[in-house]
């Protein structure tokens, strides 16, 4: 039964992916991309990887989807219909042959490898030393904390990179307002956002807390927080801050800086990023909360986009 379910699921994943790419309407493609991301989340659930499912649904489908919707809306407001001139059938056929070849090669390679849980047992033996039970959090925050540290800087760097392309007169202002202008939708979505922001805060805090023992963690929690901030901004309940706001800057660097600080503190005990015995869980949870806060703020601002001149803020950057 389970295999039949997986088979149907995989076919639907492939169908939505194909539709998201082949549809002429760009917005239709984005709709299918979001459905694709949600179905992938189900695939990860089916694989028993709930941590990844949470990340995929929240980040892969959720935040990426909203990012694409907003980009599409802003592009069409500028008169760019986001339409592609169809490429010639010959070209498409040639590309299809190449991509088909790649799929065949990859499939042969995949079938030559037998799926196994290679490191699960080894990780399980190390987990008691950390005092936490979620092995994925163990990998992310201990065994490969170095990857995770660099990754948080990728995220921070992406926001700085978005700042770098602020239009003339836009620096250091706010991003274009996300608030919806019409009064009717304002009341509906305004109420909506006032309900959803606290809900997302609770959910984010819960996901980070539960993440040490059960699926969840800083990235999933941070993304839910970003979602709450974005809904509040869409509903006009909050205005996104200026890029030079020092409180904002402090929130953005809090997680990465705390991670660096605790890592450097480990040098006193011999190694960068080694946690003192007995304090592993406390430090991991502290890093996770700080990271979730920073990730939430960073992702929300990444979705909102570059700073724009004050006049454009009111018009929503149109």
């Amino acid at each position: 039964m389970s295999l039949v379910f997986d088979l149907v699921l995989c076919l639907m994943i492939l169908g939505t992916a194909a539709a998201s790419l082949l549809m002429r309407s760009a917005l239709g493609g984005i709709v299918f991309f979001i459905a694709f991301g949600n179905l992938l989340g189900i695939a990860w659930l089916s694989l028993g990887a709930v941590n990844v499912a949470l990340a995929e649904i929240a980040i892969g489908a959720g935040v990426t989807g909203i990012l694409l919707i907003l980009a599409h809306a802003r592009l069409s407001a500028m008169g760019d219909p986001v339409e592609c001139e169809p490429t010639s059938p010959w070209m498409r056929a040639a590309v299809a042959v190449i991509c088909g070849g790649l799929i065949v090669l990859l499939s042969v390679a995949v079938l030559s490898i037998s799926p196994t849980d290679r490191m699960g047992a080894q990780i399980a033996t190390l987990m008691p030393a950390l005092g936490i039970e979620n092995p994925v959090t163990g990998v992310l925050l201990a065994f490969r904390a170095y990857d995770t540290l660099l990754e948080t800087f990728v995220l921070l760097g992406a926001l700085v990179a978005v700042w770098a392309i602020a239009p003339p007169g836009g620096w250091p202002q706010r991003p274009a307002s996300l608030a919806i202008a019409t009064p009717v939708s304002l009341t509906v979505i305004g109420t909506f956002s006032r309900v959803l922001l606290p809900a997302s805060l609770v959910m984010a805090a819960y996901l980070v807390w539960t993440g040490s023992d059960l699926p969840g963690g800083a990235f999933q929690g941070g993304t839910v927080l970003a979602g709450g901030i974005l809904v509040a901004a869409l509903g006009g309940a909050i205005a996104l801050p200026r890029a030079d706001d020092m409180r904002l800057r402090s929130v953005l660097v809090l997680g990465p800086a705390m991670f660096l600080g605790i890592g450097l503190g480990g040098i006193a005990l011999g190694r960068f990023l080694s946690y003192p015995v007995g304090l592993e869980k406390a430090l991991i949870v502290a890093i996770e909360y700080a990271l979730a806060l920073s990730i939430g703020a960073t992702l929300a601002l990444l979705v909102a986009g570059k700073p724009v001149p004050p006049a454009a803020v009111q018009e929503g950057g149109d």
Binding site: L156, P256, L260, L264, I267
Partner: peptide, 21 residues
Amino acid sequence: MSPLDLLVVAPLVFMVLSLLA
């Protein structure tokens, strides 16, 4: 202590400081 990780980490510390400075 080792310069191997510090060579990577030190510029990151400076990145954080430059955002605040």
